[in-house]
């Protein structure tokens, strides 16, 4: 029957080809602005991988990944704010609100090493704590989703309202900070960041694949498909869920940090309610349960958004709304699931 083996292989490998081309060829041909966009969208692929892990595999739909995304971004943003200051100086915005000394929780971020760990450990801890409190009580399904959304709104309110601690709505800017003597916003550093993003996307993908391939992955899928049964067989599902939620949080933090330095700002807008739901749709469009699909979805949709908003900004919400409807009704397995689906003879 299978008279086109090459066709089948082609179907299998095309998405990978697209990504490899995107990562290797586009940096040469794209103008710096588009390349910068590509880098940012690739970094969003990391948070999408995390969502795929908790939603696609474990069946936990979090609408609050923006929290961890922003926490990672803020950790790096704070470090960069402090890094380019002379000793004893304060970041400029503190002057606007009459703050005379650095708030205590800023202090450790002067250390690059601490920041390096904070970018992913802080979001992981917050996710772990939130997850533990929620999963412990077997809150799940829709309840879990709207609780995470409420948590998101609360974090948004907190960061948005605390001008004196974290510069509120304005967020922290990174373009004028310096790393190794170069401006973060300069083309050279941006290009380096692009490659760093590529490397980290691959690493994150590998991590997720490693987690989902083995027994751990089987447990996750079992939680998604029938949690009570798994519990009755003696598995402590709470700790599995908490752990995977924390991993997704860490991934979101890394993603947020990369996104921040490539867009030049971290602000509470990262915790806006619509943005976190958008993240879910990247995964849904790319294909739940296909890790590479999450990355592809993030990149494709964001490029589409960027292009549409350049041409016809008013239509983007229609298109986005239509996408939500489309993926849940007609394409439940996303683009990749559809692409890779076995042809059944009519």
């Amino acid at each position: 029957m299978n008279s086109f083996p090459w066709l089948k292989a082609w179907r299998r490998w095309l998405p990978w080809l697209v990504l490899v081309v995107a990562a290797l060829v586009l940096p040469i041909v794209l103008p710096p602005f588009r390349l910068n966009l590509l880098g940012r969208f690739l970094s969003l692929g990391i948070v999408a991988l995390g969502i795929d892990l908790i939603w696609g595999y474990t069946g936990l739909l979090s609408l609050g990944q923006g929290i961890f995304f922003a926490l990672g971004g803020y950790a790096l943003g704070m470090h960069l704010q402090l890094g380019s200051l002379a000793p004893g100086q304060l970041p400029e915005f503190f002057g606007l609100y009459g703050v005379k000394s650095l708030p205590g929780f800023w202090q450790p971020f002067t250390s690059p090493l601490f920041t390096f760990f904070a970018i992913w450990i802080v979001p992981a801890l917050v996710a772990g704590l939130l997850g533990y409190l929620v999963f412990r009580n077997r809150i799940k399904g829709v309840y879990f989703s709207i609780l995470t959304q409420a948590a998101l709104l609360v974090f948004f309110n907190f960061f948005n309202g605390q001008q004196k601690l974290i510069n509120g709505t304005n967020g922290l800017k990174t373009d004028t900070a310096k790393v190794f003597g170069d401006l973060v916003g300069s083309d050279l550093v941006q290009k380096e960041l692009f490659w760093l993003t590529v490397v980290l996307v691959v690493a994150a993908w590998w991590l997720c694949r490693w987690l989902t391939k083995g027994r751990f992955g089987d447990v996750l899928v079992a939680i998604r498909d029938d949690e009570p049964r798994l519990r009755f067989t003696g598995y402590n599902t709470t700790s599995y869920k908490t752990l995977v939620f924390a991993v997704a949080g860490a991934l979101a933090g890394i993603s947020g940090a990369l996104y921040t330095v490539q867009s030049g700002i971290v602000s509470p807008q990262f915790m806006a309610v619509p943005f976190s739901i958008e993240m879910v749709i990247w995964v849904a469009v790319g294909g739940r349960g296909t890790l590479i699909g999450a990355v592809l979805g993030a990149v494709l949709i964001n490029f589409a958004k960027s292009l549409v908003s350049e041409q016809l900004p008013e239509t983007w919400l229609f298109i986005q709304g239509g996408l939500f409807l489309l993926v849940v009704t007609a394409l439940p397995d996303g683009l990749l699931g559809w692409w890779w689906r076995r042809e059944v003879k009519p």
Partner: peptide
């Protein structure tokens, strides 16, 4: 014309686009 979408990071992004692109 570009749309800032009431989102501060988008303003920065679109500024880059207008200048570079």
């Amino acid at each position: 014309e570009e749309d800032g979408a009431s989102d501060w990071p988008t303003f920065a992004e679109k500024s880059k686009k207008l200048i570079d692109q």
